[in-house]
Amino acid sequence: MVNNRKIIMDCDPGHDDAIALIIAGAETSPLDIVAVTTVAGNQSVDKNTRNALNVLDIMQRGDIPVSTGADRPLIKESAFAESIHGETGLDGPQLPKNPKLKATGNHGVKVIVDEVLNSDEPITIVATGPLTNVAMALIQEPKIAENIQEIVIMGGGTFGNWTPTAEFNIWVDGEAAKKVFNSGVPVVVFGLDVTHQLLGNDTIIERFNQINNPVSQFVVELLKFFKSTYKEQFDMDGGPIHDACTILYLLNPKIFTLQHTYIQIENQSPLTYGTMSVDLNHTYHQEPNAHFATAVDIELAWNTMEKALRSYPSL
């Protein structure tokens, strides 16, 4: 167990991003969220910022600052995942259009740079959306690489969900992803290979429904909506809690099996743009640059998430 690890959550909430925030900021969590930065991805960056503020308000964590980051990829045009997350980016629960909490007014990229440079200990960046903000921070101030403990990402995999070979987060900004994987910073990857093993099905929804506090009930609403869109779009019996895997790993690394491997991002071909090349068989004979999750202890993962949800106060 890692104690009191400082993290920056760079996200595009998003149902699974919201769940990741909730378990990271729980009473039982040893993680210190020093900043939340938002990026265009599941929806526009403004909608994602609104969603982050609303989620933190539900968590009663107004102490965590939220800053709006990049509103588009480095090179490509923006693309959103309305078919999965809805028009608001967080469809399902009824959330205010004008959150009680407010964003800082500082740009998310500047926040990442300043927090990492000024921290007296290495910071972990948890990136659960496109990697635009993280790449821009590394470009603007390369020195931050020296004080980043890890970049823990949800993205990629050995197959795709947005194209046959590309996962959405990597596909949205392949140039940014390439920059991150070539940065020399330790990277831990939770791709579709492992996230599709953790499905929020009816059994899990009912299990969390029994907790019966406002935060757990919010998560139940998120899982119900996510389950419906994954059934419609992919004929899957439950919504994968993709982004929450990053936090589950930080809470208990034993939940996952990781392989140290060489990963590169393909961004040249229109046919395979955003594909993550994961060299699990070491065919390139290159020095590994990432740890890639291949398996998950499913029951331990749900138990860890349930413990976090139960730590929130009841009405």
Rank of each mutant, 00 (worst) to 15 (best):
D202V: 03
N209I: 05
V189L: 10
V180M: 05
M136T: 02
K179C: 08
W171A: 09
W171G: 06
G174C: 05
T165D: 12
V215G: 03
A145P: 08
V180Q: 08
P214A: 11
E206A: 05
P164L: 10
F190Q: 04
H196K: 14
I153A: 12
V188M: 03
A177S: 15
K227C: 00
T165Y: 09
Q233Y: 03
F226V: 00
S183G: 03
I144R: 13
T229N: 01
L138E: 05
N213S: 01
E175Q: 15
Y230N: 12
V172K: 10
K231N: 02
M136G: 02
F218R: 03
T229C: 02
G174E: 13
P142A: 08
V188E: 05
E167N: 05
E167S: 09
R207S: 04
I153C: 14
I204G: 00
G157C: 04
F234S: 02
G184H: 02
P214H: 11
L199Q: 12
E221V: 04
P186C: 07
G155A: 06
V219E: 06
E141M: 00
T203G: 08
L198Y: 08
Q149Y: 14
A177P: 14
V172E: 13
Q210L: 15
E167T: 06
T163H: 12
S216P: 09
I170G: 05
P186L: 09
L198E: 12
L198N: 06
V219I: 01
G184M: 03
V185N: 13
I211E: 11
F226C: 00
V172W: 06
E232N: 01
I153N: 14
K227P: 00
V189T: 15
V220T: 09
I204T: 01
Q197V: 00
A176D: 10
V187N: 10
F225V: 01
F225Q: 02
F159W: 14
E206I: 03
N212P: 07
V180W: 11
H196D: 14
N161H: 08
I204D: 04
V194H: 02
F181C: 09
D193T: 11
G156K: 07
F226Y: 02
L222T: 00
I170V: 15
F226P: 00
L138Q: 09
T163G: 09
G200S: 15
V185Q: 07
E206D: 13
V220Q: 03
N201C: 00
V152W: 07
